Amino acid sequence: MTHSKTSRRSSGKRERLAAAAAKVLHEQGVEQTTLADIARAADVPVGNVYYYFKTKNELVEAAIDAHAQSLRGMLGALDALPTPQDRLKALLNGWVEQRELTARYGCPTGSLASELDKRADGLDEAVAKVIQDLIDWATAQFRAMGREDCRELAVALIAAYQGISLLTNTFREPELMTAEGRRLERWIDSLA
Rank of each mutant, 00 (worst) to 15 (best):
A62Q: 00
E61M: 10
D189C: 06
D37H: 12
Y161S: 09
N57I: 02
D136A: 12
A140N: 07
E152N: 08
V130C: 05
L75I: 13
A159S: 14
A103L: 09
E61T: 09
A160G: 02
V155T: 11
R119D: 02
Q132N: 13
G110R: 02
T33E: 04
R147I: 07
R99A: 04
D79T: 12
E175I: 07
A113Y: 05
D43N: 13
W137K: 05
M177T: 12
S165D: 08
R87V: 00
E58Y: 08
R143D: 12
Y50K: 11
G73K: 10
R186F: 06
M74S: 15
E125G: 12
D133M: 07
Y52A: 08
Y161I: 15
M74V: 13
E180I: 13
G73W: 03
R147H: 09
N169A: 15
E148L: 08
G146H: 01
A159Y: 04
V155N: 01
L59R: 07
D65N: 14
L91S: 06
C150V: 05
R9I: 12
A42I: 00
S4L: 14
Q85G: 10
R186S: 08
D79F: 04
R72L: 05
L184Y: 00
G12E: 10
F53D: 06
R9Q: 09
A20M: 06
L184N: 00
R172A: 15
T33V: 02
P108L: 00
R143C: 04
M145A: 03
S7M: 15
E173M: 10
Q69I: 07
A156G: 07
A66R: 08
V130N: 00
G29M: 04
Y50M: 02
V24Y: 01
E180G: 11
A19K: 14
T178R: 15
A68S: 05
V130E: 01
A138P: 00
D37A: 12
S11H: 08
G73A: 11
N57W: 03
L25P: 06
G146N: 07
I164E: 04
S165V: 04
M145P: 00
L116K: 00
G29R: 03
L78V: 10
D86E: 14
E58V: 00
I188M: 01
E180N: 10
D149K: 06
N93K: 13
C107K: 00
S7D: 15
D117H: 12
S10G: 10
R72M: 03
R16W: 04
D149N: 13
E152M: 13
H3F: 14
A68G: 03
E31R: 09
E180F: 12
V96C: 05
P108F: 07
D124A: 05
E27I: 03
Y161C: 11
K23H: 10
E97F: 07
A154P: 04
L91H: 12
T34Y: 06
R186L: 10
L176K: 08
L184I: 03
P84I: 01
N57M: 03
Y52D: 09
L35W: 06
G73L: 04
P82I: 09
A128V: 00
T178F: 12
S114F: 14
R143T: 15
S7P: 00
N57D: 15
D124R: 07
R87E: 03
Q28F: 07
T168K: 01
S10C: 11
A156S: 11
S4P: 13
E58P: 02
W187P: 01
K13P: 03
Y161T: 13
